[in-house]
Nucleic acid binder design. Structure first.
Lengths: 302, 302
DNA sequence: ATAGCCATCCAGTTTTTCTAAAGTGAACGG
DNA sequence: CCGTTCACTTTAGAAAAACTGGATGGCTAT
């Protein structure tokens, strides 16, 4: 039905009818009077109906034109509301894409503080393994582990990640030296992006062979398993922060290895950075800093 | 609010969301898939929000996209209804512009027969003195007295008009010869397009000077005045048809003068002739014919 | 008269939109 | 495993639509 008419023409007609003059409509649509005049005329032709009476004082809707434009106004009002909704949503909800483990082990426990500071920003956490294209999804920010190379994204380093062994305190009690690891089970994340070799190298010792232990495809399960005392796992700094702070886990030996990777904050290279994104960035840096201070406190206590 | 987005893009988005695929939308909008794809992408950019998730199976609205397109659908439905209304009105109502006198003295009494024949066509009679531009008003047909020259209009002769004196029967009784007119009052239409001289010439007699009589600016009032027996008026054939038929008026002397003018049916030269217009034309010609037959019957009775 | 509105027309330019054709990438089917 | 299909994207160039600015013409009020 709408195929035979041009939408812009309808919009011109609606605006003219509402404002009562071409000049007014031209101003609202920010085009020239001439352009509006032509649009109106074309639309009348397409409809096969005159919509306005040309009087010396200006354009006056015909009987039919008045009924018609009333309908149009309702329609365009609806469209405008939809767009307004978009802008509002745009400003007020922030979609953050993170890996599930990061979300649950570090981000979620801190989120209430973001809400306290920015009560009008609604956060939506998209916790999925795959990294969606930032330009083609409604994701504003992705927080991902990697080397900082994201094609088509603007990446900022949040924190270079170190890896180190962690385990339940009960197990740590039996670990007097690195060699004792041979008597413990290794909890392995099959999808991990690093291996024990790196850590042994950083510790300056020959690699130790573990007892066979549990294997998972999810870092979160590894962490739970370690807390449950099933063995030793090689963990990312940030994911263990809270468990270390409250003593559910401990980090024996105190030796940490650079992983060469880090947590990066990635935003679309094409979209311009909005207020909500800036605010979130500032907030998360403070949280990172607080977590690091926690680490330092633990270190010096040890 | 709507200024920052392109309407066509919104339409593309709405259609894709409703039909669930680019291909479907492309068919409905009768453009290529590619065009729709581009429109959707541009709109997402303008909104600063992704509206669809690109999955292998096709485009799936994001959470926000679903809410957004629901609104859009409502808006476009409204617009479509407006346009549908236009088409319907277009087909079903016929606007006829006529002079008030012609409307009331000839057209209106016959209109019920048009309705009987075309019950679904709603007639609107625009009875005004000024002749509006047919291209720039919603008038489908104008019936006007003139010489057939209408710039920018397609004119067809309905009936060449003759003029002749008419008066109430009581006055006619006193008129044995044309000379007796000198003892009667003339009822004058100050805006008339012809004068008595033409009729006297057609009658082949010297002009007669009347008694002073009433003067009007409206042919309808002249006619009423003549019926009331205030004098003799020089009248158009068609306008007096009914009054002559039922005897309220009579035409003494039986001499008629060509006026050089006629009733013309004028339609826009640019708009194509629609069904309702053709039907109306056919109907009015039949009515004219019937009226003329009436005249001939009166003539032969005399 | 003359200036000021309002709208229209016209011609040329800019912008948008569309198409066609090649390309991607996931899923399907032998 | 290879080739096909499906659904969408990309690109470049062509076509269509929209816009501008200046000229024009009617009407109103000084």
């Amino acid at each position: 039905m709408l195929n035979r008419v041009h939408l812009n023409g309808l919009r011109a007609v609606e605006t003219v009818a509402r404002l009562g003059s071409l000049a007014g409509a031209a101003a609202e649509l920010s085009v020239s009077v001439s352009a509006v005049s032509q649009q109106v005329k074309r639309t009348e032709k397409q409809l096969g109906q005159a919509l306005f009476e040309r009087t010396p004082g200006g354009l006056v809707p015909t009987e039919f034109g008045a009924a018609f434009t009333a309908r149009l106004s309702a329609g365009f009002r609806e469209l405008a509301q939809a767009v307004a909704l978009a802008n509002e949503t745009n400003e007020c909800t922030l979609v953050v894409s993170v890996a599930p483990a990061f979300a649950s082990k570090w981000l979620l426990p801190r989120l209430s503080r973001h809400f306290a500071r920015h009560p009008n920003v609604l956060l939506r956490i998209d916790a999925s393994a795959r990294v969606a294209d930032l330009d083609r999804s409604d994701i504003d920010i992705a927080i991902r582990l990697g080397d900082g190379k994201w094609p088509g994204g603007r990446a900022e380093l949040l924190l270079a990640q170190e890896v180190f062994p962690v385990c339940a305190p009960s197990i740590a009690a039996k670990l007097k030296s690195i060699g004792d690891l041979a008597q413990t089970c290794a909890i392995t994340d099959e999808r991990a992006m690093f291996s024990w070799d790196g850590w042994f190298e950083a510790a300056g010792v020959e690699p130790v062979t573990f007892q066979k232990g549990a294997r998972f495809t999810d870092p979160m399960l590894c962490l739970e398993s370690a807390i449950a005392g099933h063995g030793v796992m090689l963990a990312w700094q940030l994911l263990t922060a809270d468990a270390l702070a409250d003593g559910r886990l401990v980090a024996p030996f105190g030796i940490r290895a650079e992983s060469g990777l880090g947590y990066w904050l990635v935003t679309s290279a094409t979209k311009s950075e909005s207020r909500k994104v800036r605010d979130f960035k500032a907030w998360i840096r403070e949280e990172i800093e607080a977590t690091m201070a926690q680490f330092r406190a633990l270190d010096s206590a040890a």
